[in-house]
Amino acid sequence: MAAPYSPTVRRRRLSAELRRLRAECKMTLLEAAKKAGMGKSNLSKIEQAESKTVPAATLDKLLDLYEVDDPETRSAMHELSKLAGQKGWWSQYKDLLPQILADFEAEACALRTYEAQVLPGLLQTPEYADAIFRANRVRDDDEIAQRVAARVTRQGILKRANPPTYQAIIDEATLRRIVGSPEIMGAQLQHLARMAARPNVDIYVLPFSAGAHPATEGSFVIMDFPDRRDSSIAYLENPVTSMYLEEDHQIRMFNDMFGGAQGCSMTPAQSLTFIEGILKTTEE
C-alpha cells in the first residue's frame, strides 16, 4: 500500500542512495533482500521511500552488502536514516553524496529557477561551465573536467522523452557578463536561444528596467514532482553547503518570489528577441 504521507527529502535521498548502491553491485531486489536476510517487500518499501525509518542494524547490513566501507559515508547514511522523519534540511554531505540535486532533478516533472549571476547549470555550454568553475578557484584540471562532465550529464533531463517543464528567469546582467571570452559567451547565447526553442523550456529575461523585484535576495530552484504526495522542494546553494526546503510555508514563499519575478520579466518571445539582440552585439 502506498505511503499516505509525503516522503521527506532525507527519506527520498536515503532511498535513492540505496537503490544506486544496489544497482552498482548489479543485484536484483530479490538477490539483495536474500543476502541481507530480509523480505523483498521490506527492501522494496525502503527503496521506494515507503518506510518512515530504516533500523540501524538493517542499514548496516545493506551497507556491508554493498561494500560501503568509508566511515564518513556510512555516518552520513545513518544520519539520513535517523532524521528521516524531519523536514527542512541543511545538507552537510554534498561532497560525500554529490548526486542529491541531480537525482531530484531527474525525478521532477517541473523545474523553475531564478538566476542572478550566472546562467542556470542546465543551460550552460561545457566551455561556459569550465570558465565558471575556474572563476570559482577550482584549479585542478581533472576536477574541472569531472564537474563539467557531470553538469552536461544533468542537462540530459531536458532532452529525454517526457522531459520536465523548465522555466528559467535570467537576470539581464547574467546575459551581458562576458564569461570566459567573447567567443565562449557568443556560443553560450546561441545555445541559450536554441534551448529556448524547445517546447518544454521557457526563458524569461528579467531586465534592468524592472528595478527592484521580489527575487532580489538571490538565486533558487523550485522542483515539483509528479506524485502529489511528494512535496515540492526549494533548493539554494552557497560555497559551503546546500539547502533543501519543503515546508509548505517555505514553498509558498518561493512560489511567490518566482511568480513576482516572472511578472517583472519579458515574455519568452520577447526574451528570445532580446537574447538574439545581445548576441548580435557580441558578434560585431
Rank of each mutant, 00 (worst) to 15 (best):
T8I: 09
R10T: 02
S15N: 03
S15E: 06
L18N: 08
L18K: 04
L21P: 01
L21I: 05
R22P: 07
R22I: 06
A23N: 10
A33N: 06
K34C: 06
K34S: 14
K35H: 14
A36N: 07
G39W: 05
S41M: 10
S41Y: 00
N42Y: 14
E47G: 01
S51M: 06
V54D: 02
A57H: 07
A57E: 14
T58R: 07
L63F: 01
D64W: 05
Y66Q: 08
V68C: 05
D69G: 05
T73L: 15
S75Y: 09
A76P: 06
M77R: 00
L80H: 03
L80C: 08
S81K: 06
K82C: 00
A84V: 03
Q86R: 12
K87V: 04
W90T: 12
S91A: 14
Y93P: 02
K94S: 14
L96E: 09
P98L: 11
I100L: 12
L101G: 00
F104R: 03
E105R: 04
E105V: 11
A106S: 15
A106C: 01
A108M: 08
A108I: 09
R112T: 13
Y114H: 15
L123A: 06
L123R: 05
L123P: 10
T125E: 08
A129H: 04
D130A: 03
A131K: 06
F133D: 08
A135M: 15
A135L: 15
R137P: 04
R139C: 10
R147A: 02
V148D: 11
A150E: 10
A150N: 09
A150S: 14
R151A: 09
K159R: 13
A161L: 10
P164T: 03
I169M: 03
I169E: 03
I170N: 07
E172V: 10
L175C: 04
L175V: 09
R176Y: 04
I178Y: 00
G180K: 02
S181V: 10
M185A: 04
G186L: 11
L189A: 08
M195Q: 13
P199D: 03
L206P: 00
P207H: 02
P207G: 08
P207M: 09
F208I: 03
F208S: 09
S209Y: 00
G211E: 04
A212Y: 07
E217K: 13
F220W: 03
D224W: 01
F225I: 05
P226Y: 06
R228L: 14
R229Q: 13
D230W: 09
D230M: 15
L236P: 07
E237S: 10
N238A: 14
P239R: 00
V240I: 13
Y244W: 12
L245P: 08
Q250I: 04
R252T: 15
F254T: 05
F254P: 02
F258Q: 03
G260H: 09
G260W: 00
A261K: 10
A261N: 07
C264M: 13
C264W: 02
S265K: 05
M266S: 04
P268Q: 06
A269L: 04
A269R: 09
S271I: 07
F274D: 02
I278F: 08
L279A: 10
T281N: 10
T282M: 14
E284M: 11
